[in-house]
Computed example of a mutant assay.
Amino acid sequence: AMNEAQALSSVNYRILRTISLNQQFYIIDIAYSDRNTVCLSVCADQKFYGSTVNIERNPFSIVLPTGSYINYVRSTIYYINDNIVNACSCTSSYLRINGLTLLQNKADVNLFQTHGIVVCKSGYILVCQWNRKFKDQSAGKVVKLQYMDDSGSRIVMEIESDKNQPLYICPTYIAENGNGDICVSDVRAVVVTDAGGMLRFRYQGNSRDFDPYGICCDSSCNIIVADMKNDKIHVIDKDGTFLHHVTYDGIKMPRAICIDENNNLYVGEWHTDTVKVIAR
């Protein structure tokens, strides 16, 4: 009965646009800027030359073929490289790879592996970190950083437990909701805390093999998460109630997602030569 209810809760989205990448990529992350530009972080099947591929007639740049986690705000790309948070300026057509700025302090570099990143509206930077251990030893945290122009950054807050219980196993992708909540894709769950790090809820999907990856939030504070291994995209409300699954023609292994100011959803599938722009 539950499976039937979920099937009835699927909403078929329209494909507004299919953006050709001219090459097969494993898409790791995708980010939308407020300047109508989308950037990708990818791994390539074949030798990949250069830092970007400019796709003409599309506000689109492929960046960082090393497969880093990224965020893109006001013509600045923030990305993870060797566990350090870096920032660099770019335009809609190319990436300037010089002038990297050290943001993350070095204390946790060897202890933790840094994953997802988001720049908050307040200007703080949130990153996911994992302790590089497995099974019962695996644990993670969300680190809140304040960028200091002259001295790198300082850690403002670390979120890792609530009521003495660990919050995360291996946090990967992260988003800030419009209400200030921090939404994180973790192992078999989306973990949502308030801005102060207090647990609000865990969303564990509607199947035993729920496996969340990319995450973003729409203008109504709904949380959208890619369930790559199940070929699904879940939409839940700000309090964790399941709303519907997103479907579109040919959906296959959606991994990285982002959203624009018109609630158009950009979907990067795991192994593909296109990015799909979809809307309800």
Rank of each mutant, 00 (worst) to 15 (best):
L95M: 03
S75P: 12
T66M: 04
R96S: 09
N81K: 06
T91L: 02
I80W: 02
G99N: 04
I62E: 09
L95E: 04
N71I: 00
E56F: 01
N81C: 04
V73K: 15
Y78H: 09
I62R: 05
I77D: 05
N71P: 05
N71W: 03
V73Q: 13
G99Y: 01
I77N: 01
Y69M: 03
L64S: 05
L64K: 10
I97D: 14
V63F: 11
R57F: 06
Y79R: 07
G99W: 04
R57K: 12
N86E: 14
I97R: 02
Y69K: 07
I80Y: 03
S89M: 07
S61I: 11
G67V: 06
L95Q: 02
I80T: 09
S61D: 10
F60I: 09
Y69F: 14
I70L: 08
F60T: 10
Y79V: 00
C88Q: 08
S89N: 13
T76Q: 14
I70H: 06
S68E: 04
F60D: 11
P59T: 14
N86D: 09
S68W: 06
S68G: 03
N81F: 12
T91W: 01
P65E: 03
S61W: 07
E56T: 14
Y78D: 09
N71A: 15
R74D: 15
I97H: 06
R57Q: 12
N83W: 09
Y94I: 03
I77A: 06
C90T: 00
R96F: 12
F60A: 02
P65L: 02
S93G: 11
N81W: 12
V73F: 07
Y78Q: 11
G67N: 04
N71V: 05
P65W: 02
F60K: 00
G67T: 01
D82S: 15
S61P: 12
C88E: 13
I62L: 13
S89F: 10
Y72I: 04
C90K: 01
P59Y: 15
E56H: 10
P59K: 14
V85R: 02
L95P: 02
G67C: 03
T91N: 00
L64R: 12
I97E: 15
I97V: 12
L100Q: 14
L100V: 01
S68L: 03
N81E: 14
C90E: 01
N86H: 15
N98C: 03
N81H: 11
P65G: 04
N71H: 13
I62M: 11
I77V: 07
Y72N: 12
S61L: 11
S89A: 13
G99D: 04
L64D: 10
P65Y: 00
T66S: 09
C90Y: 01
I70Y: 08
R57N: 14
